[in-house]
Nucleic acid binder design. Structure first.
Lengths: 187, 187
DNA sequence: GTCTATAATTCGATAGAC
DNA sequence: GTCTATCGAATTATAGAC
């Protein structure tokens, strides 16, 4: 049966995202992806060349972060935590970046770029100093990715048991501090 | 050349830990581990049966957490952050748990057990209520593992650039709050 | 666009000689 | 204890017919 290239390509990408999200880079095989998309494995090669380029195409993400300038300064923490929490459930973006970035260098680089390009600039407006902003972005990323890791990847029972509101209540002050808190002096 | 079983076994375990730490579960092949240990791959099978059991033997960890009862209550945050930071540099334990737990279910289970058995009880003494303690332990784990992830695994430039003292200065108040802070009410 | 066939590797695991 | 040889399965990737 003959399908237009766009349809087949989209089906492959959708299947690839699912596999990368649940299996990580190594275990997500081209054969399994092709089977999920109901096409021949050779079609994947035809459209994307090799596995690396398939991943590159499947891991093009927009975190779609909210405009923190539009929210009151004392509520940016809550806003960002809430966004990341819902973001996790909207699609597989964060799950893919986490599962693949841990064992594959190209995927790690992709994760670095996504966060640096999208989270960094968001915070510059809040802080002013660009150098400070990058540090604060890393702190925010560490807490948000860490919670995602414990809750959705490693599935720590107490982290899974927490309600979304509980997570928001606990993490918001932390993120708020990383975003707008006074810079602590190390000694 | 004939070596005592204990020596060979120890060499295999050391090589296995290194490989699991840097490559994750799937990419850490028995052949590569054997090569690192300068022995034949079949020896690995002889001593450990299969790859699963090799991992189980290599991932038996003691986080060696400090006794928080011996430290002033307002300094437990700093103490724990400092411990995790040095812990990361002492050996490959945390790196193994992170790199393998993300893509391998048995490894994830191991990570859950290690944290539940060693971090949980530590916090019970601080909180009293066991249910609360598990939640707080998960929060602590989320921030500590998240920072380790960004700094050592994904290697976010700003996270790598931070000094140990900077990390301690930023994370200590967060961990202190997760350990001893008032429980926020979600709404 | 779709598929078969297959090359070239690589992996975990086994059998058995010494 | 140590090694060779090898099996069976799975992988990425290519060539080419239709």
């Amino acid at each position: 049966m003959r399908r237009p290239a766009e349809v087949t390509k989209a089906a492959i990408l959708a299947a690839a995202r699912e596999r990368f999200a649940t299996d990580g880079y190594e275990k997500a095989t081209i054969r399994a992806i092709a089977a999920d998309a109901n096409i021949d494995p050779s079609m994947v090669m035809r459209y994307f060349g090799n596995k690396d380029r398939l991943f590159a195409a499947a891991a093009e993400f927009d975190l779609d972060l909210p405009d923190l300038n539009a929210t009151p300064r004392d509520q940016v923490g809550t806003a960002l935590v809430r966004h990341f929490l819902t973001r996790w459930q909207v699609d597989d973006a964060l799950q893919i970046l986490l599962r693949t970035g841990v064992t594959n260098e190209a995927a790690a680089e992709r994760t670095r770029v996504v966060f640096a390009a999208q989270l960094g600039p968001l915070i510059i407006h809040l802080v002013g100093d660009p150098g400070q902003a990058q540090t604060r972005a890393a702190l925010v990323a560490s807490q948000m990715l860490g919670m995602a890791l414990c809750r959705y990847i490693l599935r720590f029972p107490p982290a899974v048991a927490m309600s979304d509101d509980e997570v928001i209540a606990w993490l918001s002050p932390t993120i708020q501090n990383y975003l707008t808190g006074e810079r602590p002096d190390p000694h």
